[in-house]
Each structure stands twice: as C-alpha cells, then as structure tokens.
Amino acid sequence: MVVVQEADFDAAALQQQLRRRTATRAGAIVTFTGYVRDYASDASTHSLFLEHYPGMCEREIEALCAHAKSRWDIDDCLVVHRVGELANAEQIVFVAVASAHRGEAFRACEYLIDALKTRAPFWKRETLADGKKFWVEQRQSDHEKTEQWNPPSTSEQAGDK
C-alpha cells in the first residue's frame, strides 16, 4: 500500500494495519519514520515544502515496493509520504516491511527508504528561520547509496570493466 497525503500519520496505527494484513505470516515488521530536520548546516530550518507529481509519484513508489517484493522474501510493505508545508521536526515519511524473517525485512526497508530519496518524484523547498527559501538538491551520497542496491553487471562480475 502506498499513500501520498498532506495529513500527518499515526505510525503505530500504520504498523498495526500492516500486522493485521500479514497476520500469521510475518515474524518481523521493520519500520522507518523520517522527520523534517535542519538541512543547512549553518542555519535552522523553519519548514520544508514538498511537491510531487500526483499519480506518477504513487506509481513509482508502488514500483519500488514491487521490486522489493521480488528481490527479498517479504510478505507486504507500506509507504506513507507527506506533501505540502511541513514544520521542522514533523513526520515526513513512514516505511514498514513485513516478512517471516527480520533480515529480509531490514534489507527491504533500507532499500525502500534509500530508493525513495532518489527515485520518487518529490521536490523539496526549504524555508530557513530567517525567511530565506531554496530548493533542496539531491546529494551525490544519496545517489551512491541507492546505487549500492543494484547488482553488478555480468561483465563487472567477470572483471571485464
């Protein structure tokens, strides 16, 4: 299940919803909750405004979830991502993964949050405490983190770089 919304969410209720859906199959549920934080190292964040491409955004996140299900032995996953104006310290994203085994759930959850940062079509505009506004650019380190989940090509495995 994928939800993009302006309203805040109840992480405990979402986890219970996933638990009910996976009932006796899941031996582990791994969750991640992300929060708005100071992005600029030298200034305090007042708020973060998130825009998204409706429809396309949800489809991309659903594709990420489908990829996680095909790559790891997981029963189900749930992603809730907020959009609109969010104050510093507010919840921004919730990811939960249910699996029979914790290792699969941890890896799939980490993959989903890494891939969300670089593949889901969200745009972030930060407003600092002094009123300065700017669009947040994706960091190279986020791209590198996402790329680590891609298996090496056949030629790389053979050493034919």
Rank of each mutant, 00 (worst) to 15 (best):
M1L: 02
M1Q: 02
M1F: 01
M1H: 05
D8N: 02
D10Y: 01
A13C: 04
Q16T: 02
Q17P: 03
L18K: 08
R20S: 11
R21M: 05
T22V: 10
A23Q: 06
T24L: 03
A26Q: 12
T33L: 03
G34M: 06
V36K: 06
Y39C: 02
T45C: 10
T45Q: 03
H46P: 00
S47E: 10
S47Q: 10
S47P: 04
S47A: 15
F49H: 09
L50W: 02
L50H: 02
E51G: 04
H52C: 14
Y53N: 06
P54W: 07
E60G: 04
E60Q: 13
H67T: 15
K69S: 09
W72Y: 05
D73K: 14
L78S: 10
L78Y: 04
V80T: 14
A87K: 15
Q91F: 02
F94K: 10
F94C: 09
V95G: 02
A96L: 09
A96G: 14
V97Q: 12
A98R: 12
A100C: 13
G103P: 07
R107S: 15
C109N: 11
K117P: 08
E126H: 00
D130P: 06
K132Q: 15
K133A: 13
W135A: 09
E137F: 00
Q138D: 08
R139H: 09
H143R: 11
K145Y: 00
T146I: 00
W149E: 13
P152F: 12
E156W: 11
G159V: 06
D160Y: 09
